[in-house]
Design a protein around this nucleic acid. Sequence first.
DNA 1: GCGTGTGAAACAATTCACAGCG
DNA 2: CGCTGTGAATTGTTTCACACGC
Lengths: 205, 205
Amino acid sequence: MRRTDVPDVVIRRLPLYLRCLTYMAERGQSVVSSQELGAWVGVSSAQIRKDLSYFGEFGRQGLGYEVTYLRDQLRTILQADKRWSIVLVGAGALGHALVNYRAFESWNYDLSAVLDNDPEKVGQPIGDLRVRPMEDLVASVHETGAKIAILAVPAEAAQSVAEQLVAAGIRAILNYAPMNLVLPAEIHVSYIDPIASLQSTTFYL
Amino acid sequence: MRRTDVPDVVIRRLPLYLRCLTYMAERGQSVVSSQELGAWVGVSSAQIRKDLSYFGEFGRQGLGYEVTYLRDQLRTILQADKRWSIVLVGAGALGHALVNYRAFESWNYDLSAVLDNDPEKVGQPIGDLRVRPMEDLVASVHETGAKIAILAVPAEAAQSVAEQLVAAGIRAILNYAPMNLVLPAEIHVSYIDPIASLQSTTFYL
DNA sequence: GCGTGTGAAACAATTCACAGCG
DNA sequence: CGCTGTGAATTGTTTCACACGC
């Protein structure tokens, strides 16, 4: 099964399965059925089985899936077993919160540089990092080997900074700015926008 | 067109259109075509037209859409013209960042109470609020009229707190905890989980 | 001509239902 | 018997293509 044959919706569900399996393994559960896993993550058992079937046969008929085995398979598929360096652009309140968010570290993501173009912020410490000027972007990306960047700048700056990131060799962006980015198709962009989420939920209220 | 006839994917795109139209209106642009709007938000022009057609006929043939008119229509559809009170549970680093996030205010959302069950945190000021104990939940929801809650607690606590929110009358939850919530179908839950986003992007790298 | 609104066609995702195996 | 893996059927979404009006 080639990467491009797997629908993107499937890829976006795998982390939910992985998270759930990780909790189950921590609790010492050894086996899980597609039914039980589906109940936890909120999808049908058929969907779980179909999703997994894109990548192989991980279960045993009549029994279910071995929790740690499936967890490790998903880790490999998602490359969550690797350590990933991340460059963060934007040292505002959000940037601070992200640097101090422990979950990155525990899931193998390493926020290894923080940059900002505000001279007031450059040089200030955040966590055990120091804010670097935007001129250091290419150097930061090379030093850290980062392929992923987190964009936590104001909307007006987002497109321009995103282009600089791509020019510096970044391949994937997690964008917290409330702005759609127009970038080459091979760059992967994920959007996190609580306002957009809230606006779609108020439609239903 | 009844609420339930509109696919949820469409509802999730409307905020992106609204955001873009708002920027365009600020810049003084008076008219926009589905083509141009699509280029900005990254969807096809046919999709824009189809999405809007669920709610009415807002454009003019040969011309396009009047920016402020369409913006106001979308605001009404999404109920983004109303002011919404929000109760925030969780006064950790994330809770602090959310309270200080100015975009809520500017998009008509009012973070009107913050709660936490940690006695150390209760009573502390955040922005111009003061952290209240979880026992005040029902009172907070009633005082503020909140129908929406933001959940910013550790994963272990999320399900339990979510149930308390529902019992207190909350109808929609924006969940920052890395945990799927199992709740009655009429409760609307949106998930924000940067780790899950990162894990799906590393699949492609 | 240009650009919307919309059925029809194409494509994509989910669910069904069951063969097959432990 | 229980539960996976999977084609087939169903359901949902996007794109096409064109009539219509400015």
